[in-house]
Amino acid sequence: MTSTATNTTVRRRRAFSRKDRITLSAFVGIPTAFHILLVWVPAIGTIGLSFTFWSGIHISDIKWAGIENYNNIFTGTPVFWEAIWHNVIWLLWFGLIATPLGILLAYQIDRQIRGHRFYESAFFVPVVLSLAVTGIIWNFMLQPGGFVQGILGRDISNPISFYGNYDINTYVILGIASWRHIGYIMLLYLSGLKSVDPSLKEAAAIDGATEWQTFRKVILPTMKPVNIIIIVITVIDSLRAFDIVYMIYGSGTGWPILGILVFQNISGGGMSMKGAAYAVILFALCIGPMITYLKQSFAEDVK
């Protein structure tokens, strides 16, 4: 299909009228210029700035720093490693628990078990909520005197500190994040499953394959494109995590994570280019998954 399309377009490439040429250039030029100016220029600017010292006020104050900001982060900032550790746990949790649960749910719902329509909606509702709302709902559930405390038999004067206790706060945060993530993955996977030929599953069932065998040997391989997209989304979301932690801890380092460290150093009064360096590190970690995603999405076009 791609080759015939190219042939016809080549044949068609006759002289455009002057007016058409101007229209076409404007159609592509204006949005592209806009995108470059607001996204790519600043992105490259941040990479450049991460090698400088600057308080963010006068352009003339920018001083070359070499790798000093990075050096400072890697060797002089213990909270950075704590944040990286939290991102890693986040990624492991999402990758090993939340995402597989979402896939499992999608698989069962796709088999049209009883009540599947209701289940699909129920798990998806948290995805349409803003993380600001999600944060408040869970703060509300977990607050002293709130529902969860009540279930655990703690009254308002004797609460468990879900966010302050270092033994449990990580799991609490990941639990809240999963509340949203599982539904999101479920929906993405479900839409992929709907395009799998039903006769494949029937054939497997007739051959006496168990559920697990059908899933592993039939569904997973045919779903390869969706699998890749979902893995990439899981990784990128784990790296970029910010909103929910901000709603719980604000911009402080109650539970440091890379997204929060960037925010601390670039916003408000104390802007420093260490923030730019944090942002570049975050970006560098995202590059691998980004390329995987692009490769997957554009595989046929590039051919």
Partner: peptide, 11 residues
């Protein structure tokens, strides 16, 4: 796909 934070300072 770029992280929003990467864009902020120059923007």
């Amino acid at each position: 796909l770029l992280p929003q934070q990467l864009v902020f300072i120059p923007l």
